[in-house]
Design a protein around this nucleic acid. Structure first.
Lengths: 195, 195
DNA sequence: GAGTGATCTGAACGGACGTTCAGTTCAAGG
DNA sequence: CCTTGAACTGAACGTCCGTTCAGATCACTC
């Protein structure tokens, strides 16, 4: 037994990443073995090394892909005319986007400490870039008098922490729909900004 | 070589817990070995089992102790007269208390998935109890018209996520003091509640 | 239909893991 | 000063870890 019928690199590669993401999210990077990932894919552990040079890089690639996806999706979102509308738009974008990929969000936040120094710096840079997008909105609103905020840097961190929360508890078919959560959180953020 | 001069159960026990807490916070439960904890304490791995039945219980005890501490400290905080003052008080308490023990906060949040079912249920129950304290304040304020909130459950989760944020980035001697952070966050929470 | 290369197996590598335990050491009580 | 037992060592247990690699298999090309 070796090569299975119909197996291709373009199929197995994504399946490896999907299995790794799901397992890392559920049990944590350090608690998941390459053999578990392989079993999930239906392959022997050695075969994983056709798709990643090592376990650490597998984690890093998942996180970098996620961060790239966030930034790309936000860049493709039309810019609203006023700071208030832009903040509302950002809040709704953030919740919607993150609710669609809870595993990637969870891993990208929880497993930062398992990255080596160079990989950590890369991911941290991307995160900073995203935060800066929000802070720019807050600064504009503060300058124009649309928001009343004593510290835009703190508000940035506070809003992102708040808006990421639903990712940890949202379940399809729960008490509230995505749209309702989006509405409520957007309203709380606007309130908190003094808009 | 065995028993070192001046070593006692009352000294080594706390040192084991302190070393475990610090290492779990930095590297994660699954990534830390009993031998690393022992080395930090200055003891052989086998000696740890005089102070904990196993690694999982060591983690659980750290988390339960932390949750008990939170609830005890909050219970000892005087109740303010109005919902608005109580929310302000809760926000300041939460930030102050959590900024004083960032490692315990980090571990208690990040390592939930490494608890077995029974231990998880216990910790989750304590967490729920704490959240209920905040939600009660929000409900009173909503009922009295002091707050304008569409959903007190969501607001509870959102505020706790927001208020716990500083634990992850606060550094002594940074740009802002504890008191300043406390002021800013308390204000943002009151705004978000529509107070 | 032979040959080639991408894909995967299965076994092995040295090392680290959590946990146990017989034996050693030493502070303290009589 | 002798005994006792709490505190700890050091070695061992079986198991699993990440990673490597020679060899097997099979889809494809010519």
């Amino acid at each position: 037994m070796a090569r299975k019928t119909g197996s291709h690199s373009e199929i197995t590669g994504p399946r490896v990443r999907a299995a790794a993401l799901a397992l890392f999210a559920r049990h944590g990077f350090a608690a998941v073995s390459m053999r578990q990932i392989a079993a999930e894919v239906g392959v022997q552990a050695g075969a994983l090394y056709l798709y990643t040079p090592d376990k650490q890089t597998l984690l890093f690639d998942l996180m970098r892909t996620h961060m790239d996806d966030v930034l790309t999706a936000w860049a493709a979102t039309p810019k609203a005319p006023t700071p208030r509308a832009r903040l509302d738009c950002f809040a709704r974008f953030h919740i919607r986007f993150h609710l669609d990929r809870p595993e990637a969000v969870f891993v990208s936040y929880m497993e930062l400490r398992n990255l080596d120094a160079a990989n950590f710096a890369t991911i941290e840079g991307l995160r900073r870039t995203y935060e800066t997008e929000l802070e720019a909105i807050l600064q504009e609103g503060k300058a124009s008098g649309a928001f009343s905020l004593s510290d835009t840097k703190l508000a940035t961190l506070a809003f992102i922490a708040m808006l990421t929360g639903p990712t940890n508890w949202f379940r399809e078919g729960g008490r509230l729909s995505r749209a309702e959560i989006e509405d409520i959180y957007a309203q709380m953020v606007l309130n908190a900004a003094g808009a």
